[in-house]
Computed example of a mutant assay.
Amino acid sequence: MSTDDASAPSDTHAGASRVPAHIAIIMDGNGRWAKARGLPRAAGHERGVEALRRTVEAAGEIGVRYLTVYSFSTENWRRPAAEVNALFGLLRTFIKKDLGRLKKEGVKINVIGRREGLPDDIAMLVEKAERETASNSDFVLNIAFNYGGREEIARAARALSADVASGAVLPSDVTEEVLASYLDTADMPDPDLLVRTSGEYRLSNFLLWQAAYSELVFFDVLWPDFDRAWLEKAVAIYSDRERRFGAVSTGDA
């Protein structure tokens, strides 16, 4: 794991690095960013959306194919109702404002997580975004909304169990690959790199199955201040690592 302080990262040219196909980001620190400036938490979330726009653009430009961002967790329902409603409002705004542009730029939007319990208009916007970008393939943006890693695995296990009970799948055929095909990310590779901002050092129930062999990078920078330079710094750290997936290091062979 790597950590870094919130000082401005040095210039890193991602073109000279080994760019991961799939990056996952825990976008943390909106509330602390706002508090440090004497602003309401909602203002931090609004600036966080701006950081997301910058990151989506930068990720596509440097050659990333999949970007998965943690937007709203199943645990976030415990926050004050006003903040939950503000987060819903930001998703509404993001889809309404950015959908047309993302569609033209070849971005495919997936929203992963539970659909049950979401406001009707949010569910309709999610379905619209996925439907209108379904044929795009240049870049995939996964928005984890009302998402929890344990809940996703349990949901996948229930679906697989139902297929076993019906005879569609034999118990002897259940493998890691079969279970993975029931996850929300079934049609994409696992994240190569997982980044968390704000100086916290945990996964917080994000992509627990998929991140089994992801390289983890933690930055002290608060999410509203995240930009292309920070993304490129994360890619440079990733590029310098040797991924062994449980095997022996090539230097030890």
Results as ranks from 00 to 15, higher is better:
Ala234Gln: 06
Gly44Cys: 01
Leu170Glu: 15
Asp121Arg: 01
Tyr70Thr: 10
Ile112Asn: 08
Ala212Tyr: 06
Val19Gly: 06
Val64Ala: 09
Asp120Gly: 11
Gly113Tyr: 01
Tyr182Gln: 07
Val140Gly: 06
Gly44Ile: 03
Ile25Gln: 09
Gly60Arg: 15
Leu160His: 08
Val140Leu: 12
Val56Ser: 07
Arg115Lys: 07
Ala186Cys: 09
Asp190Lys: 08
Glu132Ile: 06
Glu57Tyr: 09
Gly63Asn: 13
Trp33His: 08
Ala211Gly: 05
Ala82Thr: 08
Tyr70Asn: 05
Gly89Tyr: 08
Ala14Asp: 00
Val248His: 05
Ser7Met: 04
Val221Trp: 01
Asp138Ile: 13
Arg53Ala: 14
Arg155Tyr: 11
Leu90Ile: 13
Arg79Asn: 12
Ser7Trp: 00
Glu127Ile: 01
Asp192Lys: 01
Tyr182Asp: 00
Val174Ser: 08
Tyr238Phe: 15
Glu242Arg: 09
Asp173Glu: 14
Leu203Pro: 04
Leu170Val: 04
Met124Phe: 02
Tyr213His: 15
Asn142His: 12
Gly246Arg: 08
Leu39Val: 01
Tyr147Asn: 08
Thr68Leu: 09
Asp184Trp: 07
Ala165Trp: 04
Phe245Asp: 06
Leu90Asp: 13
Ala247Pro: 02
Glu242Ile: 06
Gly251Arg: 06
Tyr66Ser: 08
Asn30Trp: 03
Phe88His: 14
Leu194Val: 15
Lys104Leu: 15
Pro189Thr: 07
Arg41Ala: 10
Leu160Arg: 06
Ile95Phe: 11
Gly15Tyr: 00
Leu87Asn: 10
Leu125Val: 10
Ala168His: 14
Thr133Phe: 12
Val217Tyr: 15
Asp227Ser: 13
Glu215Ala: 15
Phe219Ile: 11
Ala247Gly: 15
Ala212Phe: 11
Leu99Cys: 10
Thr93Val: 12
Asp120Val: 12
Ala59Tyr: 02
Arg18Val: 11
Met27Leu: 14
Asn205Asp: 14
Asn142Thr: 08
Gly63Tyr: 09
Arg243Pro: 05
